[in-house]
Design a protein around this nucleic acid. Structure first.
Length: 341
DNA sequence: AAACTTGACAACCGCATCGAT
DNA sequence: GATCGATGCGGTTGTCAAGTT
């Protein structure tokens, strides 16, 4: 049983690449282009596994690889993106020109992970000792991020940078214990990798997998046992029961079992908050963020290339950004107290 | 100076997904 | 729809240099 190994390991070089091997690989790719990694070593005369060649090229030899220290701006962006996306290094790397997923992953594991944890710990201590509630500052959110090196870092002061970087997104879904989509049922779409797909579906916030709701009627947000909003008409009520098997349980109490609700779980879905909360989404009262739209948010964090390449992840990030905003609205800046109806 | 620890990062590994057949 | 090869991704390990005891 099991898969065949990608190649026979016998007689292959392992460990660090030599300059000679690098040159052979570079020359071969210059001539023949990328791809067909499995056959590449044989054709190029390298005693390496195809995977190894690919990795070496992508992480080290590829043109335009930026090496050297991660700048404070890059660091801030990594932290921010990681907060929204979790360990989706390739996606994060896509926003940092010249940086590789491996480099960012390593940097996170050796530097940022600890730093963020320390900051969070410090922040908790500060909050506990003063008894102050966290305040939501809309002006600190949705800071325009840009590739333009001349404007990188924007106008945020160092203190603001820290505050933004360490702000933890709590994705508790307020009083909404269920999100119910109306008829027709969305269908699962194949894209990206769902890290949780193979896990037992015991998560209390069971929003797993990717679903395409683009062809659905406008989804309905039903507020669990509390009164549905007036936006939900009789037809929608009917649809709710028709789609009962697609009800998504977002029970925050049960979520506490897992310590905290992980945004990444929600980001693994293809929903956008705007789909759930159109009445909020269409409102222009977004603090200092006027007329936000998915496209606008995408522009903030993704290059055009990425929009084409991985639309689903863009949507996931949009959802994250929007979730960040809406969670603040719903919690009124206070993570511990849930707004009642 | 030797032994040990730590940090940084390159490379490896296993698995998921995609796309062709 | 099933199968399989190719590729992508994220977690983990290995290695080496620098720092500390």
């Amino acid at each position: 049983m099991g898969r065949n190994p990608c190649c026979s390991k016998e007689g292959l070089n392992r460990g660090a690449w030599t300059a000679v091997e690098d040159k052979i690989l570079i020359d071969y790719i210059k001539t023949h282009g990328e791809g067909r990694w499995r056959n590449l070593p044989q054709k190029a005369g390298l005693k390496r596994c195809g995977k190894s060649c690919r990795l070496r090229w992508l992480n080290y030899l590829r043109p335009n690889i930026k090496r050297g220290n991660i700048s404070p701006d890059e660091e801030e962006l990594i932290i921010r993106l990681h907060k929204l996306l979790g360990n989706r290094w390739s996606l994060i790397a896509g926003r940092l020109p010249g940086r590789t997923d491996n480099e960012i992953k390593n940097y996170w594991n050796t530097n940022l992970g600890k730093k963020v944890q320390l900051d969070r710990h410090h922040q908790q201590n500060t909050t506990n000792s003063t008894g102050n509630k966290k305040q939501y500052h809309p002006s600190r959110k949705f800071t325009k991020l840009t590739n333009d090196p001349s404007s990188s870092g924007g106008s945020a002061s160092p203190s603001n940078k820290t505050a933004t970087a360490t702000q933890v997104v709590r994705t508790k879904a307020a009083k909404c214990t269920r999100v119910i989509l109306n008829h027709p049922q969305p269908h699962r779409i194949g894209h990206g990798r769902d890290l949780h797909a193979d896990k037992e579906s015991t998560s209390p916030y069971n929003l797993k997998g990717d679903y395409d709701i683009s062809n659905c009627e406008k989804p309905v947000l039903a507020a669990g046992t509390s009164n549905p909003t007036s936006d939900i008409g009789q037809d929608d009520q009917n649809n709710i029961s028709a789609a009962a098997d697609f009800a998504v349980n977002l029970n925050p109490a049960a979520a506490a079992v897992d310590d905290e609700l992980c945004l990444a779980d929600i980001l693994n879905s293809d929903y956008q908050v705007s789909d759930f909360l159109p009445e909020y989404y269409n409102s222009t009262n977004y603090g200092d963020v006027q007329s936000s739209s998915s496209t606008d948010l995408s522009d903030l964090l993704f290059s055009e290339e990425m929009l084409v390449q991985d639309r689903s992840d863009v949507r996931a990030l949009n959802a994250g950004l929007e979730f960040e905003y809406f969670s603040s609205v719903l919690f009124d800046g206070d993570e511990e107290n849930w707004l009642t109806d």
